[in-house]
């Protein structure tokens, strides 16, 4: 009897777990796995005639033979890595300051100040940059008024502007994991570093960074993925010259109605991001499990 009742209880617990997990599993299945399976199938077919398809690698071959496609692909990857590194370089000192140097109220205020820009949509924030940087924008007008330049200056539509926009958009996603991981670093570990003969550089290199590594990795993964998959910022700030791979995907799907090719590009982007994240984790000797701890 006891055995039976305990199994009954076990079943009850298991049912609870299943019910709790159901929304998540449904979400993963319907919105992530199914579309990707379909994307893969669509990408592996070629249209022969109206409503006639056959299995083929033509879409992938087209990607490799057309320089514009894979140039954009490589450029997007390189720019995304650069944006991630820049975000880390700027975000780390900011996070360190918030987590370790500020105390009490000031700390919360600073952290909120990092958060507040994200209360408005990305579109509005990007337009904000456009108002500042365009030919008839605030900075251009100021430079003319100050007599530093003769005519209007166009600061939009170049790579530096894209980079500024990407870093700005990503900053919070770097700062949040870094602040939380640095918060967990006991002050006495840093003090012991100085006591043992360290200076600011050696203490940061040997103590702070190894401790912060999981936060750095998770921040970098999130920022890299968001940047690689970003459409709005490169498109608005970079204009026609932005050459971002998501734009190629958009063009294939929406402008050319070439769903087969678009699917193939989408899949290639997924492979690219997975590969780079994997390499990054290997190089930093982190595991995915560490980064979500």
């Amino acid at each position: 009897m006891t055995a039976a009742s305990s199994t009954g209880q076990g079943n009850g617990v298991r049912l609870g777990v299943v019910l709790l997990a159901t929304p998540l599993l449904l979400w993963l299945l319907v919105l992530v796995i199914l579309p990707h399976v379909d994307l893969l199938l669509v990408s592996l077919r070629e249209r022969i005639a109206f409503r006639q398809y056959e299995f083929s690698f033509a879409n992938y071959i087209a990607f490799f033979v057309e320089p514009l496609y894979w140039n954009t692909y490589v450029r997007t990857a390189v720019m995304s890595i650069m944006a991630t590194v820049l975000t880390l370089i700027i975000g780390f000192p900011v996070s360190y300051y918030i987590a370790k140097i500020m105390r009490g109220r000031g700390k919360n205020v600073l952290f909120m100040m990092c958060l507040i820009p994200f209360w408005v949509s990305e579109l509005v924030r990007t337009f904000g940059w456009m108002i500042l940087l365009r030919e008839s924008g605030v900075i251009s007008s100021f430079l003319q008024w100050a007599g530093l330049v003769d005519g209007p200056v166009e600061m939009l539509y170049n790579d530096v502007t894209i980079m500024v926009g990407l870093v700005y958009t990503s900053m919070l996603f770097m700062v949040v994991p870094l602040v939380s991981v640095l918060d967990s670093l006991d002050d006495s570990l840093i003090e012991a570093g100085y006591d043992l003969g360290g200076n600011a550089f050696t203490v940061t290199r040997d103590i702070v960074i190894p401790h912060a590594m999981p936060g750095i990795a998770s921040g970098c993964i999130v920022v890299f993925m968001l940047t690689l998959g970003n459409y709005l910022t490169p498109n608005l700030l970079g204009g026609k010259d932005s050459l971002w791979f998501t734009e190629q995907i958009y063009t294939q799907f929406i402008t050319r109605f070439n769903w087969e090719s678009g699917s193939a590009f989408g899949f290639l982007l997924l492979v690219l991001s997975s590969l780079i994240v994997w390499i990054g984790l290997k190089l930093s000797r982190q595991t995915l499990a560490d980064t979500v701890r």
Partner: peptide, 9 residues
């Protein structure tokens, strides 16, 4: 110094 929390890495 030997710290109260030991401060081992």
């Amino acid at each position: 110094m030997v710290f109260q929390s030991y401060a081992l890495y």
